[in-house]
Every structure is written in C-alpha cells, then in structure tokens.
Amino acid sequence: MNESTPSRPLARNIIEVLGSFGTPPTRGLQYFNVGNQSLLDALDEFYLSSYLQEGGAAYKMVVGDYGAGKSHFLYCLRDIAWERNFAVVKVDLSPTETPYNDQKLVYAAVASNIIWHEPEGISDESGLTRFLEGTLERITGGPLSLETLNNPLYRALVDTLEASPVDSPAYQTAVLAYFDALIRQQEERLDSLTRWLMGEKTSPDDTKILREVGVTGKIFRTNAFRMLRSLCQVIRALSY
C-alpha cells in the first residue's frame, strides 16, 4: 500500500461518514480534497511554516454559506498544522456556552477541546489532561512508570518547564505536579489537578490536595485570560 492509498478501516470510515451525514470525516481528507490546495499552500508557507513557527500570532476568518466546505477546509488546515507540530483546539463559540465576556467558560472550552493527535488511527481524543499525558509519553519514549522519574528526557522536560516564562506560577506548578502524579499513579491527586486544570469546580478537599503540591488559587473569570495565556506558554514549552 503506497502513501496515497488510505488503509481499509480509514477508507470505510470516510465512506460511512460522508454517506451517512454529509459532513467531512475528521481523518483522511487528503484522499478526496480538491480545489483549495493553493490557498492551503499559501497559509502553510506564510504562516504555519514561517511566521507562526517564529512565535508570531495571526487571526483569520473563514466565511462561507452552509455546506460551502468551511469545516472541510479547516480540517485540511488542521492536518497541515499537525504536520508542523502545532497543537490544535476546535472550539465552538456561542453566546450561551462560551461567551466572549466570560473568559472562564472560554478557558474551560479550550481545555476540554484541545486535541491529542495520533498520526495512525481513525479518531482523536480531546482534553487537556489527555494531551498532557500523550505528550509526556511521546517525549519520554514509552509507557510511564516510576523509572520515568529518572529518565533523562523527563528530567530535561521538567527543567525546561521550570525555566520557561509562564504568566501564572500556579499554572506552571499544576502542570508539573500533574506529570509527577501521573507517573506515580496518585489517583486522588490526579483527580484534583484535573479538575483545576480543566477549569472545573473544585472542592475543599481538592484545595487541600492542591496546596500540598504548591497550587494556590483557582481559575476565575477575572484571571481566566491569564490562565489561557499560561496554557499557551506551557504548550510552547512542551516543544509545540
């Protein structure tokens, strides 16, 4: 099977999704995409492979009628971003669920919808903690165990995160504590850190556990934008 031929499960999934729903599948668009390659190439050349790689930022809006192919185009752009080692988040903004004037809800939506992408497979998983776990396994080169604590790659990751500028020290500490608890399989600590990182409501018991690892404060509407910036800075420090 050459690179231009999808695997049998992927091909079947493409047919089923297109035939059943008429919406683009989340995987395999490159096998039937036509008509927009020049635009994708331009965005890749002038942004994904250059300006954004150098730390720049940009905002683009895709406008089109219903059924015009907006989602299809964005999925194609997403695939190029993954090839360039970008982290990708798909968030549906709405005035009720993710209003612009409530940054805490926006943060929670981003944390819930950041995508962990495996190059092989039919579907992806979402969620910040899954993203962190997958990144840790990818960097350290395998399944996690107590031996990971002494893995030079893990130690280098910790050193990099500790040395990286992050707006919120509490956020930086929470991510480092999450990695440590994940390796040590400390379920109670993981649960508390997960709720905090995901922007969910935390209990007094969570607060006690969080303080034990040096995480103080909570994610509120007033500091959520700072936490969102901190999330972006952490992702950058993780070599994305």
Rank of each mutant, 00 (worst) to 15 (best):
R130E: 14
R130C: 11
F131V: 11
L132F: 15
L132R: 09
E133S: 03
T135M: 09
T135Y: 03
T135E: 07
L136F: 05
E137Y: 08
E137Q: 15
R138V: 11
R138A: 15
T140L: 00
T140H: 01
T140S: 03
G141L: 14
G141C: 14
P143Q: 11
P143I: 06
P143K: 02
L144A: 07
S145R: 02
S145Q: 03
L146R: 13
E147C: 03
T148D: 04
L149E: 11
N150L: 13
N151G: 06
N151M: 11
L153E: 13
L153Y: 03
Y154F: 05
Y154C: 03
A156K: 13
A156S: 14
A156C: 06
L157Y: 06
L157I: 06
V158N: 07
V158D: 01
V158A: 07
D159Q: 15
T160P: 03
T160H: 08
L161T: 07
L161R: 10
L161S: 06
E162W: 02
E162T: 09
E162K: 11
A163W: 01
A163S: 15
P165N: 04
P165C: 05
D167P: 03
P169C: 06
P169K: 04
P169G: 13
Y171V: 03
Y171P: 02
Y171D: 03
Q172A: 05
T173K: 13
A174T: 01
A174R: 00
A174P: 01
V175R: 02
V175Q: 05
L176P: 10
A177V: 09
A177D: 09
A177F: 05
Y178F: 04
Y178R: 02
Y178T: 04
D180R: 12
D180A: 14
A181E: 13
L182K: 01
I183D: 02
I183A: 06
I183K: 04
R184F: 07
R184I: 08
Q186I: 11
Q186S: 12
E187W: 04
E187D: 10
E187L: 12
E188Y: 01
R189C: 05
R189I: 13
R189D: 08
L190F: 00
L190Q: 04
D191V: 15
D191T: 15
D191N: 14
S192D: 01
L193I: 06
L193F: 00
L193E: 08
T194Q: 10
R195N: 07
W196G: 09
M198G: 12
